[in-house]
Structures are given as structure tokens and as C-alpha cells.
Design a protein around this nucleic acid. Structure first.
Length: 530
RNA sequence: GCGCCCGUAGCUCAAUGGACAGAGCAUUUGAUUGCGGAUCAAAAGGUUAGAGGUUCGACUCCUCUCGGGCGCACCA
């Protein structure tokens, strides 16, 4: 990538300057290269001169000039380099380099942007993990699409990714018992019209259950089956592993985890219950692992579950949770230390989705909008864009009327339209032209700008694989589509000039590839016609 | 009370400590007898909640205040 090469150039220039005593000796800090927003400042820019000015005991401008003079510019990549105002060094990519990239994209096709950052590394990413007590709601849409997109990006970055969904279905968990009480008419915690209908459909009243847990488990399985069907067929999200809480019990993994903690003297008894010493790791208080009744808490079950993941030697374990689980983050981070996990445990919290008018998104009747309802209303592609364009930290206020109104003007169509338009031109051109394309003909400002956007794709993958800020993807897709539409407006693809036509056909073909790769990351469909 | 998150254009949201805080929608205006107008070009819209501090440089980091959300179970 051009960016890496520029970083190398800068580093060498500083070292050279130090050898020639033009700069004094000091350790070179990390060299940051970014894309300036304003095009007059070049395609890449670095602030390194300003960062080292103080250590070098020179003014930022002087340092920038010294570095610039030492730069051994590779004319294959760079056109010119400039020093400007406070001390930035700005790099302009050469036309030649840009033109060459079109060919490379065409050669790589779907593989374009495939990186090797994660080579030989495994990542486990767990998301959604909705309870088998009801359908997925609009709040869970965030984790669903974010997780799916992030998993796609990590795979594109070269990691081996395992997508996992955890189902809290243990018969002795309180939520399953509570669900069972609803079935048996002893409680109403989960009662609503849909559930009543479901119970009627499956004739649960005629069945005899030994316990609340049995009843809840039975209904839970029915609900879970529906949820899984919805996720796989409607959301089009594919999980590699559907982990079951009940399996942790079957294989006595809770006991094993418990004993491991006990062995390290991290457990003690108080008021009849067994407590975990999270305070030893800086927590405000300790937490109960086993109740006075002897039954394990969710914490112990989650520890057993995470131990299982840690044991599988993932270099990263990513959990995507709702905001209501934020209090659980510190505990699990402490647990990772207790269990001696050497990889990264990254826990990402999705902020809440609130309903317009300040209503809380609760499962109580009338206050829940299911994810399915939203998708039926606006469509999958719009829904995905709608969620993905926002940072996880944003607290969304949801209004179905507004979502619907915005959906008609959603930028996702703008992106898809670019792809459809290219497809249309390619159909019309139908040039089975095998002659050598002269990429040097791609010289128009709009053409070069479009190529500039195309080659940014790899950097987008790399950055996002590192910082998980997936909103970068839809933003990039929109910018890319914009660059194409501008090009289309300014440059006629099919014309009497055969040479130019084939060069431009190559360019839009490359654009089509990158658009498709980008939409694929987001799980948005790639239409040839609209 | 304590912990985590948030406050940016009329609305919905962006912005690895960088240059003039950007998009989409809404508003106003202009463009093609068109390889798809679901497009392109432009205008207008901001004291980044407020006050200090750190820095060559702060929407971003630190402190305080105000406002909002979510947690703080022997629920999950």
C-alpha cells in the first residue's frame, strides 16, 4: 500500500538526516500518515515534523524541510512532496501509480483488499445472543449487523473468524424457570399476545411438565428455533457455532471453572453463598458465584463459557453486548486475568435504542418493536445501512415513522445505483475487447479522483480491523459512489474513441469490483438493475 | 451516591490530537433530448452544552458545572 511505503520513506529520511548530523539523535516516534480532507494538501500528509520539533530542538518548519530534503522520492509512487504551514509534509501520488492500480484491481477481483494482518490468527466473535424468551427487538439489530460486518472485515483482514451465538437455555436458570411459570399459568413475566398464540399453536396446555424449568426449556426451544430461522434466512447472518448454556452443565464445565478459581484462592463463603474475589482485581465489590441454595449464578455460567473460548486459543475473543450488560464488563475482564488468558478480550457495548417519546424498550406489551417489523417496513438493505452508519456509542432514538421516511431517501440506494449503472454500461458496451488497455489515457481529474478512492479500500479494511469503527465502511461506500457518479457525469465511457473507451471500461469494471466488495462487507445486496 | 456512555447544522449522524468541524435529509437555486436524472453543480445553515486546563495545535485528552441514557441482584 502506498501509505506504508510513504511511512518507510519518512523513516529513512529521518535516519539519514540523523546520520548526516542535520538532526540530532533521538528515538523516532510512530510516524502517522493521514489523508488530508482538503485536496490541496495532497493525498497523504504527516505531522511528524511538528511532533519531533521539540526533541530535535528546531522549529517544525525547519524539521519538515530537513526531512523533505532527505526524502528519496520514488517517482513511481509519488508525484511531488511539499512542506506547508505549521510543519506538515504533504505527499501527492503520481498519476502513473494510480493508473497502474486499475489493472491490479481487475486482476485481484473479489480478492482485492484481502490483507494478511491476521494471518495464522483466530478470532472468536460473539454477538446477538438473544435470550430464547422472545423475538429479537430493534435494540438487538445493532449487535446483529455490527457483529456481522465486523466479522466480515476481520476475515478480509486475514483472520480466521469464528462467529458464535450463545443461547441461555439452562433449565435451572431463573429466566427459563420464569418462562416456564408463564407456560404453566403461574406467572406473567413474559406473557404477551404472541407468546399466548405460540403456546396455543403448540398445545402447551395439554402437555405435562415436571417443573417450571422443563416447561420454560420446552417453550424456549420453540422460540429459539424461530429466532434462528429469522437470523439465518431473513437477516442472512451465518453463525459458525450456536453455543448452548445447557452444554456447559452437561459437561460439568461450571464445576471445572469453579474448581480452578477455588484452587487460586479466589473464592470464599459468606452468608451461605460462594463469592468471587473480583475486588482483588480492582472491582468495587465481590460477586456471587453460587447462591446459598447451591445453584450457580449467571456469572459462573459465563465464566465457564468464556473459559471454554479461552481454551480454544483464540488470539482475540470479542463479545458484543447490549448497554444493560456494561456492569458485567469489568468482571469478565478480571476473569480473563484470573484464568490466565493471554489473548485480547475485547468487549464492545452497543448503546441503547430508545423509542421516540422516551418510552423504554421493554418487552412489556406494546413497548417492543421487533427487528422483523422494522425490516418488513424498510427492507434489509436500508436496515443494515441505518444501523451500520452509526457508531456503537450513539444512543439512538427510534421512530418508525422517521425510519420509514428516511428509508426512501436512504444513501444505500445511491451506492447501489452506482453499481447498477456500471452494470448497465457494461451491458451496453459488451466489448469483448482483449486488446491491451492503455491506462495512461485515464488522465481526467474525475478519473484520477475515482482511482484514488478505489485504492483506499485496503486502508479502510486495515483501520477498521484495528479499531472496530465499522461506520467507516458505509461512509466510504458513499464517497466511492460519489466519486463514480461525478466521473460518470464528466466523462463519457462509451465513445468513438476506442482506446479511451476501453480504458474507461476497465476503470468502471474496477469500480464495480470495489463497490461489490464494500457492499459485501456490509451484507447489502449488489444489484445489477434497480 | 458510585461506575460506564452521550450532548456537534432544523432533523439523523460523521470527524486515528491536525490545516477552513463534514455528509445525508429538509430549504433555496442551476444543469442533460441523456453510456440509467435513484444523477451532477451550487447556496444557506455551527460559540462542537458551558467554564477552566494541557498542547505549536482540542469536537477529541484532563478537571469542574449543566443536561440525557444505561448499569449498580444470591436476574440474565
Amino acid at each position: 500500500m502506498a501509505k506504508e511505503k510513504i511511512i518507510n520513506l519518512i523513516e529513512k529520511a529521518i535516519q539519514q538526516a540523523q546520520e548526516e548530523k542535520k538532526l540530532m539523535e533521538f528515538e523516532i516516534p510512530e510516524i502517522l500518515v493521514e489523508h488530508p480532507e482538503n485536496m490541496e494538501f495532497g493525498d497523504f500528509s504527516t505531522n511528524i515534523a511538528m511532533r519531533i520539533a521539540k526533541i530535535a530542538k528546531k522549529s517544525p518548519m525547519d524539521v519538515a524541510e530537513i526531512i523533505n530534503n532527505q526524502l528519496v522520492v520514488d517517482s513511481k509512487i509519488l508525484g511531488k512532496v511539499e512542506v506547508s504551514k505549521p510543519g506538515f509534509i504533504n505527499f501527492f501520488i503520481s498519476k502513473r501509480y494510480l493508473q497502474k492500480q486499475v489493472k491490479e484491481i481487475l486482476e485481484k477481483g473479489d480478492e482485492f483488499g484481502q490483507l494478511e494482518i491476521g494471518k495464522n490468527k483466530k478470532i472468536n466473535i460473539e454477538f446477538i445472543s438473544g435470550n430464547p424468551t422472545g423475538p429479537l427487538h430493534i435494540g438487538q439489530g445493532r449487535g446483529a449487523f455490527f457483529g456481522d460486518c465486523l466479522a466480515n472485515i476481520l476475515r478480509k483482514a486475514g483472520y480466521k473468524v469464528v462467529r458464535e451465538y450463545f443461547i441461555n437455555n439452562a433449565k435451572n436458570s431463573n429466566q427459563i424457570k420464569e418462562l416456564g411459570k408463564t407456560v404453566l399459568g403461574k406467572g406473567v413475566s413474559y406473557s404477551n399476545d404472541e407468546l399466548k398464540e405460540l403456546m396455543k399453536k403448540h398445545k402447551l396446555k395439554n402437555k405435562k411438565f415436571k417443573s417450571d424449568g422443563e416447561a420454560g426449556y420446552f417453550l424456549g426451544q420453540i422460540i429459539q428455533k424461530q429466532n434462528r430461522n429469522f437470523i439465518e434466512n431473513k437477516l442472512k447472518i451465518k453463525f459458525d457455532n450456536w453455543a448452548l448454556e445447557e452444554d456447559l452443565y452437561k459437561d460439568s464445565k461450571l464445576d471445572k471453572a469453579y474448581k480452578l478459581l477455588e484452587k487460586q484462592d479466589l473464592v470464599y463463603k459468606k452468608d451461605g453463598a460462594e463469592w468471587l474475589k473480583t475486588t482483588k482485581f480492582g472491582d468495587k465489590q465481590d460477586w456471587v458465584l453460587k447462591r446459598a441454595t447451591g445453584s450457580p449464578t449467571y456469572l459462573l455460567s459465563d465464566i465457564a463459557y468464556h473459559k471454554d473460548k479461552f481454551d480454544k486459543k483464540f488470539s482475540k475473543v470479542i463479545d458484543i453486548w447490549g448497554a444493560d450488560h456494561q456492569g458485567h464488563v469489568f468482571k469478565m475482564k478480571a476473569v480473563a486475568k484470573m484464568l490466565g488468558y493471554r489473548g485480547d478480550l475485547d468487549i464492545l457495548i452497543c448503546q441503547v435504542v430508545r423509542l421516540k417519546g422516551g418510552l423504554k424498550l421493554s418487552k412489556r406489551k406494546g413497548q417492543i418493536i421487533t427487528l422483523e417489523e422494522l425490516i418488513d417496513e424498510v427492507g434489509m438493505d436500508v436496515a443494515r445501512y441505518f444501523y451500520l452508519v452509526k457508531s456503537l456509542d450513539t444512543q439512538m432514538e427510534f421512530d418508525m415513522a422517521l425510519a420509514k421516511e428516511q428509508s426512501e431517501k436512504n444513501p444505500v440506494y445511491y451506492i447501489q445505483y452506482a453499481h447498477a449503472r456500471i452494470s448497465s454500461i457494461l451491458r451496453k458496451a459488451s466489448i469483448k475487447d482483449k486488446r491491451v488497455v492503455d491506462y495512461k489515457l485515464l488522465d481526467h481529474k474525475s478519473e484520477l479522483n475515482l482511482i484514488n478512492q478505489l485504492i483506499r479500500f485496503s486502508e479502510i479494511i486495515e483501520d477498521t480491523a484495528n479499531d472496530y469503527q465499522t461506520q467507516r465502511i458505509p461512509k466510504y461506500a458513499t464517497e466511492l459512489a460519489n466519486a463514480f457518479h461525478q466521473f460518470y457525469h464528466n466523462c463519457k465511457v462509451i465513445s468513438d474513441n476506442k482506446e479511451l473507451s476501453s480504458a474507461r471500461i476497465a476503470l468502471i469494471d474496477a469500480t464495480k469490483i470495489v463497490l461489490k466488495n464494500t457492499l459485501d462487507l456490509m451484507g447489502i445486496t449488489v444489484p445489477k438493475k434497480m
